[in-house]
Amino acid sequence: MTRFRRYLPGLPAYAFAYLVFLYTPVLLLPVFSFNDGTIVAFPLKGLTLKWYAQLGAQETLIRALFNSLIVGGIAALASTSLGLFAARAYVRYRFPAKEMSEGLVMLPLVIPGIIVASSMLIMFVSIGLKPSLTAVILGHTFLALPFAVSIMKSAFDEFDQSLEEAAYDLGETIIGTFRRVTLPIVSPGIIASLLVTFTVSFDEFVLAFFLSGNQPTLPVYIWSQIRFPAKLPNTLALGSILLLASILLLVVAEYFRRRTSKTSI
């Protein structure tokens, strides 16, 4: 192995350059959101907070934010509940067509977004459900499910089965054991899953664009603002807040996820 370490001395430098490539577009939004000018270009014109201050007065923005919070909250609860039970089945039991079922719930990750969006739009309209937040919630639950299942699977992987058996032996019912033994132990996993699935829904655009009708979620609202150069600084400020929110949620989720699994990633 020592020979490998000396080989390719440029690799760490490449890795750092790659990080710069990854982070530049992400950090650009906050940098220019404080810029006292409407054009996103160097040199910076001076610091200002006015773009942030203007956000609070925009009613459509606030409504879109509420829509996104509702959609994200419900989709997170629904996908995590479905994922919780499915993950327990996959980790604990052997049953017919298990591999098929495990593959099936991962399917939402690999279907192109435009196909999910267009086919769901047609289906919802066919069954009489007009484009609305309900339609977006159903769609986002679908998209977030693979994330919930994988997080919950790793939470159950670490779970010591003998604890449940002990509870049965001590006279607990199945439901009682689940509520008083299983649930508390996997709860960090549940919290991590809720946060991650919420973030997935909160940032999702294409499906919401097709299904939200006249109730835009936040990304759909941002999409409508992107075209207007005059709105650009406000969009940057809004984007920076969302960026910070997403990253905070993820850091918290990561913290809880680690509490369930001692193995690193």
């Binding site: 479905l82 499915a86 089945a89 996959y90 039991y93 052997r94 049953f95 719930v105 999910v116 769901m120």
Partner: peptide, 27 residues
């Protein structure tokens, strides 16, 4: 064991299965 596994995983796989096959069928 088998029926427990099926029962617990059914909601998730039925949800995904339905939301893949029905929209595609209508499409």
């Amino acid at each position: 064991e088998a029926s427990k596994g099926l029962a617990l995983s059914a909601p998730a796989s039925l949800y995904v299965g339905a939301l893949v096959s029905i929209p595609l069928g209508i499409l």
